[in-house]
Write a protein that binds this DNA or RNA. Sequence first.
DNA 1: CTATTTGCCAAACGATCGTTTGGCTTGAGC
DNA 2: GCTCAAGCCAAACGATCGTTTGGCAAATAG
Lengths: 213, 213
Amino acid sequence: MRDPHIDQSAQTIDLPCGSAGKGRTDRWPELLEAAAELFAEKGYDGTSLRDIADRLGMLKGSLYHYISGKSDLLVHVMREAHRRGLRSIAALAREEGPAIERLEAIVVAHARYVCTERVFTAGFFEARRHLPEARAVEFAADERDYRLRVEALIVRGQDEGALRTDLDPKLTALCLLGFLNSLHLWVRPNGVHSIRRICDHAVMLGLDGLRRR
Amino acid sequence: MRDPHIDQSAQTIDLPCGSAGKGRTDRWPELLEAAAELFAEKGYDGTSLRDIADRLGMLKGSLYHYISGKSDLLVHVMREAHRRGLRSIAALAREEGPAIERLEAIVVAHARYVCTERVFTAGFFEARRHLPEARAVEFAADERDYRLRVEALIVRGQDEGALRTDLDPKLTALCLLGFLNSLHLWVRPNGVHSIRRICDHAVMLGLDGLRRR
DNA sequence: CTATTTGCCAAACGATCGTTTGGCTTGAGC
DNA sequence: GCTCAAGCCAAACGATCGTTTGGCAAATAG
């Protein structure tokens, strides 16, 4: 069986399917979206291949033309989530300028991504839970790198006099990122609060604090 | 089959088992702890009754002397989590005194509970996902009540001049509680950070903010 | 002592799971 | 027109799931 997805380089942003064909139907994007959506909604173990196939209007056995197995979808959901947001957000941590401004930009971008790409964010964390250790390391390095850069920004913010010095950089980074990564758990797609306001409040809670100055 | 658990009033703090017996083995607490632990670790659908029975050293069929079915465990895990912490934490929101002090007390107590009772907190949110709508309303009312009280405290804190007035009370309460409820996702039981320090940082992030004053 | 209940085992049930196989249909390339 | 691969259906596989049933051994009550 063909499997153009497994070996696809994580560096490219091309669709995992090597569809250079012209008029052929290729439902890989649909499959990926359906898998992420169902994983986010019902969990990995709670989603059967039949559920996914139903959403595409096909039988579960037919999915094996696109994937090598159910666990295969986990990796691709994570890669897609990774591709859609984490990489570009992490890039913000590498730019220059005052640390406090970089932190603000990161918080806003991270919050915006988690809120707008709710499905893939939830799918990402759901997938990570069920990924075997060997597969998880592929993404763990990037996450760790991202967290360390935020940590470094906090340290630099302290040195530059913008951030209070009585907090532990690592613990603070964990709190901040943990908070941002949990937004998708309660933010609702068509909720009463606009994403813009949610991002504003994320900055207020994360950086400014609630206390009056 | 007996089922002393289903009809047990949610008001008492007695163990769900009516074990007035003297020397009998009654492994209900073990069962509850094992279920919560496995649900938190592997998820509800990822945990089989055989997994739970194995941890107690018995066969899966034997569990039906304690429960009426697998979904039954969900309700009991949530009730236990509810009993252990949420009720006492919510009580803090009803006490008197300056709003800002009440908020601080709530944040500390909530963070401490989520960190110390990691298993039942994770089990609580895992259980809530898989609870049928009809069962979920039993707990939704308490959660909503708790959130509304935090909201009211934020409003009062604004009126008293302790909190900044440019934030939306409801959205802020959602952010704050969402942050606290997500601590269990990355806090590790025997991690390098003490619970005390984690609580301190939760207050810093949630109330004081990171910026230097 | 006997009678009854508790706690658990042993075995089986139907249902559903992920996965495999073989074949049909359609459209592209030569 | 022929060839070949893509895309999907149909049917089956063994494994595991939650659940039920019958029964045995020990402890309790009378």
